[in-house]
Nucleic acid binder design. Structure first.
Lengths: 362, 362
DNA sequence: TTGTACGCGTTATCAG
DNA sequence: CTGATAACGCGTACAA
């Protein structure tokens, strides 16, 4: 029952019969101490179950050894994996992770950053609704707080770990176009509040233009439509001659399949679908999902590594975007109207799982 | 360019021409102050961009306003959602979340708890490999640190937010048995290191026994087999006359479907599958997955609420397990050998999505 | 080699 | 109503 709620270095010093400075030196191996007193201090510390107070240390040392991390939501496995990647990169560094989530709300974003800053985190790893417009974020940086972004494209001199959404989306358009699709749509949740979605649409649109194809339809879904296949089916039905859909994430892509089934439409023969993110589950579906495969964990790791370097005072440069893969799948085929002799889902050779895309910029 | 790295209450006081105590009282609304000085302090604080240091406060107040949370991995959406649930419950409480993950390693678990304790968190929310054997965890509690468990069944007087794995597994056995399945198996990852898996097997086994059915086969998969449908197919093939599989989580259940397809077996006609967790994606599959639906978010919320109450000094009691639902799906049917006239996947009426189970204890 | 004393930012106490 | 001061736990000059 030796349950003193807090045992401090003072207690250790008293128990060991020495000054607190000596105890500190011994326990930190940070200075001279006779073998004898060293022994006494160590046993005292062990007996009392002493451990340093990170708070005392932070106050005195000016560093909290804590990193703040803000993401929209951990319920989205992409962000959850990224945070796990951050953890992986931080493990062994001595830094702890303080997390916050905003539920995709821009005001909550700013509040969260302010809160994290008040906790005196030593650095910030952030995915938020609108970093380019967040005065709070810029102020934090101006105050000397290192900031590392995740998922965002480079902005305002912030360093970011990301995939090139624009190029990835062009790749999607290319895949559709090569198979003969002309009438396409881009499907997204929260289009207006996500720079990722906007950049994906921009790339998709640009590549369609470059090929003299009709502009893709832009469909922004609410949560309700996204989670209710019946509603989604209605929306799709109202769109007429569509043969291919680029879904801004894999969950949406799977929802599209479900909706198509409800409509009696066949994927991929009546409707081709390509997703985004490359979540593991897409591989395991009856009709493995064609998608752009990204590595959220790697994004988190890179963001954390960048931050660690910034905190060491190194001059850091923006790294090139992380690679994405186009993952072939059974949800992609030629449109039915273009060719009738070759529509048994032919474009998916099960042996080839993904093709690395070359990232020629521009 | 007013970029003093730290602006403290001292700076505010000097700027406002008053003592720091007065500044503190004004900024905290914690005592008397003349309207005039109040004004001066507030503008000074605003001008300087002052915000309180959580560290200084923690040191003086003895509370860090931080809660430590340990989970095996955020890459598992079940835990990620639970942590999000914790966040949800904590939002507005003033507490911040310090997270750690152990990657399912028991030693890392203990280390993480020690680290969180050193950060002087005000409470702990924990899912770990073996809480019942963790001296570190018990020591933390003995030191007066409130602890709230997630997912674990009640042990050692720890309060926990959980579903009754044993009863849920019995429900699965009942569903199989009612359809006429006799030869079943339980499929799990990390069986030996997860009390959840063990309890699920125990319940499954117990109910089979109670019905004079053969004991279910117990299959523990490595990561490799779980992620490689070909390997999983081999394992299933070697098991012979199996007609039904209870997978310890939905990902495994989906992997089983994939493997069955590879073997040319039909789900559910040759093999019925029931999963566990009830991840959203299961609903959207071609063959919606029959599963035990749990609510990880609710588990996180309950754990956090319990912890908040403990920290308020309230006497808390173990709450009853959170409810689980059996979610019907297209992966469950009578075994082929038992009845030949009724095997068009009949047991899944799409209108009825889930049936609430009654939680008679025992 | 050792111990005393100060400062980190905050709040609470207490005397003015 | 106000402000000086002690205390929280720690590291570290500096003095012994």
């Amino acid at each position: 029952m030796e349950s003193r709620l807090k045992v401090t270095i003072k207690d250790v010093a008293r128990e060991a019969g020495c000054g607190i400075a000596t105890a500190s030196r011994v326990l930190n191996n940070s200075g001279p101490a006779s073998a004898e007193v060293r022994e006494r201090v160590e046993t005292a510390a062990r007996d009392l179950g002493f451990s340093f107070s990170a708070i005392g240390r932070a106050l005195q040392g000016g560093r909290s050894m804590t990193i703040g991390c803000l993401v929209p939501s951990l319920a989205n496995p992409v962000f959850a994996e990224a945070v796990q990647g951050v953890q992986d990169a931080l493990s062994g560094s001595g830094y702890q992770l303080l997390i916050a989530s905003s539920n995709y709300d821009g005001d909550a974003d700013n509040e969260a950053i302010a809160t994290l800053a008040a906790k005196e985190v030593d650095g910030l790893i952030v995915t938020m609704v609108a970093p380019e417009r967040s005065a709070t974020l810029k102020q934090a940086r101006r105050r000397g707080l290192p900031v590392s972004l995740m998922f965002h494209d480079p902005i305002d001199g912030f360093l970011t770990a990301h995939v090139d959404n624009f190029q990835a989306a062009r790749e999607v358009a290319r895949r559709f176009a090569d198979l003969g699709h002309r009438h396409t749509a881009f499907l997204s949740l929260r289009f207006s509040s996500s720079d990722r979605s906007r950049n994906r649409y921009a790339g998709f649109h640009a590549e369609c233009r470059a090929r003299d194809l009709p502009d893709p339809a832009l469909i922004e879904l609410g949560e309700a439509e996204a989670n209710t296949p019946e509603l989604l089916a209605e929306i799709l039905a109202s769109l007429g001659e569509l043969t291919a859909i680029f879904a801004s994430n894999d969950f949406l892509a799977i929802a599209v399949q479900k909706a198509a089934r409800l409509m009696g439409k066949s994927v991929p023969h009546d409707l081709s679908v390509i997703g985004f993110d490359g979540i593991e589950i897409g591989r395991l579906l009856d009709a493995p999902l064609a998608t752009i495969e990204t590595a959220p964990n790697a994004i988190g790791r890179q963001a954390a590594q960048t931050l660690l370097e910034m905190m060491q005072g190194k001059a850091c440069m923006q790294r090139p975007p992380l690679p994405f893969d186009f993952r072939a799948g059974a949800t992609l085929a030629r449109p039915r109207t273009e060719s009738c002799d070759d529509d048994q889902g032919a474009t998916w050779p099960p042996s080839v799982h993904s093709l690395k895309t070359d990232l020629k910029q521009g």
